[in-house]
Amino acid sequence: MTTQSIPDARTRPAGSSASSPAPREACDAGGTRPRRRSLAWLGFTPFAAYVVLFLGVPAVIAVASGFFSADGSITVANLRAFTDPTILKAFQGSLLVSIVSAVLGAVIGALVCFALLGTRAEGLLRTVVDAVSSVLAQFGGVMLAFAFIATVGFQGFVTLWIKSTFGYDINGDGALLYKIPGLILPYTYFSVPLMVLTFMPAMEGLKATWGEAAATLGATRRQYWTRIAMPVLAPAFFGSLLLLFANSFSSFATAAALLSQGGIVPLTIKQQLTSETILGVSNTAGVLALGMLVIMVVVMFFYSLLQRRAARWQR
C-alpha cells in the first residue's frame, strides 16, 4: 500500500511547485530546495521496507493462500470450506462469544466511564484505572485464562465458594470454561477495560456548558440524559461496541490456553495450520483468514464511520 501511494503522490508536489509558486505547499513540505527533494524520499525507505515485508507480504499471502489448490494452481474451490458444518459452527461460536461479550463489555464499561466523570484526569484514581484497564485489555491473553481457571475452574475460588454456600456446582454439567459459551466470561473481562479506554474520551467530551444550558432551560437530569447526552454519545458508544466486537473476534491467546480443540474461528485456523503438512501454506487456513478479514474490515469500516461522527463533539 505504501509503495503504491508514495510514487503516486510524488509527482504531485513536484508538478505543483513547478507550475505555480504555491507558497503554502512549499512551506508545508519544509523545503524550498527542490534539488534536495528527490533525495529526501529515501527517508521513507526503512519504514516502507519494513512494513511491506512484514505487514504487506504476510497479509497478502494469508489471503492469497486461500485461492491456491494443493498443487499450486489458482482455484476458488477452497471457498467451499464455508459450507463445512464444523467451520460454520466455528463462525457461529465466534460471533456468539464476540457479540455477547461486546454488548456486556460496552454496557458495563460505559457505566464505569459514567462513574469516572468529574474525577481529575491526572488524579491517582484515573491513572490507576487507566493502567489496570490497558493491562487487562491488551496484555491479558494466556494469563487471563489462568486467572479464570483459578476462579471458576473445577477447584476455583468462586466454584468452591458457591458450592459451599449455595450447594450448587457451576461445573456440574461439564467444565464451564472449556465450552464455547464459557469463553464469554474471560472475554467480557477484557472487553470492559477496553470500553473504559475507548469510551472515556467521548464521555469527557460532554461539555459542562451543555448541562448548564439545559438546566437553565428547565430540563431535568433525565431529560438532559435522554435528549442531549445520549444522542451525543450514541455514535461513540456504538463505535466502541464494534471495536470490542472486533477485539473479541480476533482474540486468540485466551481461547488457545483454555480449549484444545476448535469451536471458534481462530482455534480452527490453528487446527488447520498445525495439522497440514505442506510447508505451512495451508489453504483452508487461508480461506478462514479471509473470512475473518472480511468480517473485520466490515466492522472496522463502520467503526471509522461512527468514530468520525463521534469526533464532531470531541474537541
Binding site: F54, A62, S250, I269, A289
Partner: peptide, 25 residues
C-alpha cells in the same frame, strides 16, 4: 494520513490472520 492508516492497520488484521502469512515469510 497514509502513515496513520498503515500504523493503525494491524488492529484491523487479527494476529491469527497475519500468522497464516508469517509462517512462509
Amino acid at each position: 494520513r497514509v502513515l496513520e492508516f498503515v500504523c493503525i492497520l494491524p488492529i484491523t488484521i487479527p494476529s491469527i490472520v497475519l500468522v497464516v502469512g508469517f509462517v512462509p515469510v
